[in-house]
């Protein structure tokens, strides 16, 4: 299973980004291999349509779950139709490592 997390920096210790469309980095984590990939968000400074463009980027990686602080209305509808689960942690200061740890624990 592949998971996408929005990140504010390009290290595992950086804090999750609370925006989806205009986050700094996307982290793609593969629960099978444990591989983590940081991709800078090309739509970071977009004036319009950052959300749908980001959905396209994330969906092209074959992601099953997306974790972020907030999703816009357009984004939610798009992910619903793509059958991607959205998760919004209430604590905005979670780091990428802490989130990934939760998925590692699930496997055991």
């Amino acid at each position: 299973m592949k998971i996408a997390i929005t990140s504010s920096g390009n290290s595992p210790d950086s804090v999750m980004d609370s925006r989806f469309g205009r986050c700094m980095y996307f982290v793609f984590y593969d629960t099978k291999t444990g591989a983590m990939e940081f991709v800078p968000n090309p739509n970071k400074d977009a004036i319009e349509g950052a959300g749908p463009a980001s959905v396209q980027l994330v969906a092209s990686k074959g992601v099953d779950k997306v974790i972020s602080g907030e999703f816009g209305n357009k984004v939610k509808a798009l992910f619903d139709s793509l059958k991607v689960q959205l998760i919004i942690p209430e604590n905005p200061s979670l780091t990428i490592n802490q989130i990934v740890d939760k998925f590692v624990k699930q496997q055991k």
């Binding site: 689960q85 942690p89 604590n91």
Partner: peptide
Amino acid sequence: QCPCYFNHLEKDEKTIACPLCL
């Protein structure tokens, strides 16, 4: 437990667990 919000896509499934902490 987490606490977090999440949406559920498999509407036919009865038991729902949190995707983060199960």
